[in-house]
């Protein structure tokens, strides 16, 4: 049976892992390669590197971080933040990323999704959607949650999938960094609207939250950052918990499974 994936997100700024609350107030959490190595040992299923302050000049710095992480781990690696052009994506993939995550750029120019899917395959193209509850709907925001768009999350996810995206990385801005649980309503709406995997993000605070998003939220994968970074909980413990709850997960050698 296909396992539900647990994904660790490394929010990177200037080569260091940071993590914000509601996209602001960053606090430092460590060296990306070092964290990736620890997560690999604990049985993480995938790593996402999010360049939170990506600028044009930082492409090289980003390549350096990707390369350092890809050297440490032999797991799927996704890179996002500041991937605006085909060239940005090519540089990230060349450095060792298996997938790139598009956000603002995909909304501005949705044909970029198709261009990259044709060049690298849909499996390499993740469309990241940052959504916020607004007047009974889920509004899509861009520019790290700063700018509202007229798009709805479900509608945009559907279009992204039709244009060739291989996965949706769905972040609830309301829940991000709050540890109050994933937005299961948002996640379930998007996950049932598209036929590609949906990664839930934003709000992970307890093991129970993961169980909820995999059942009520119908997520295919769940992503978290701070819950893992500060050693509050290990990936291994989380997976054991989910396994006991009957949720299919990949158990590592240290967790009693194959």
């Amino acid at each position: 049976m296909l396992s539900k994936r647990i994904i660790a997100c490394l929010d990177v700024r200037d080569g260091r892992v940071v993590k914000g609350i509601n996209f602001e107030g960053l606090r430092e959490a460590g060296d990306p390669a070092e964290l990736a190595r620890r997560y690999n040992v604990e049985g993480i299923d995938e790593i996402v590197i999010l360049d939170v302050t990506a600028t044009l000049e930082s492409r090289q710095a980003r390549a350096h971080t990707i390369s350092a992480v890809a050297h440490e781990i032999f797991l799927p690696l996704c890179v996002g933040g500041g991937i605006r052009t085909e060239g940005d994506a090519a540089a990230a993939i060349e450095a060792g990323a298996d997938k790139v995550s598009l956000n603002t750029a995909a909304l501005q120019d949705p044909s970029l999704i198709t261009t990259l899917a044709n060049r690298y395959g849909s499996q390499a193209v993740v469309v990241a959607i940052d959504a916020k509850r607004q007047d009974g709907r889920f509004a899509v925001y861009v520019r790290s949650g700063q700018a509202e768009t007229p798009r709805g999350a479900v509608d945009w996810a559907r279009e992204a999938a039709e244009r060739g995206a291989g996965e949706i990385l769905l972040t609830s801005i309301d829940r991000d960094g709050t540890k109050s649980g994933f937005d299961c309503v948002l996640t379930a709406e998007v996950s049932t609207a598209v036929n590609i995997p949906v990664i839930a993000s934003g709000g992970a605070g307890s093991f129970e939250h993961f169980a909820e998003v995999f059942t009520a939220g119908r997520a295919d994968a769940a992503l978290a950052a701070s819950i893992f970074h500060f050693n509050e909980h290990s990936v291994e413990e989380l997976k054991r918990f989910l396994h006991l709850r009957g949720i299919p997960v990949r158990l590592g050698p240290g967790t009693g499974g194959p």
Partner: peptide, 21 residues
């Protein structure tokens, strides 16, 4: 049915992405 839209009969998401045994 086109690519990326849900298949209500089966609920089988394609591509198959992730860890399987």
């Amino acid at each position: 049915r086109s690519r990326g839209t849900p298949d209500s009969r089966q609920d089988l998401k394609v591509p198959h992405v992730g860890w399987n045994s």
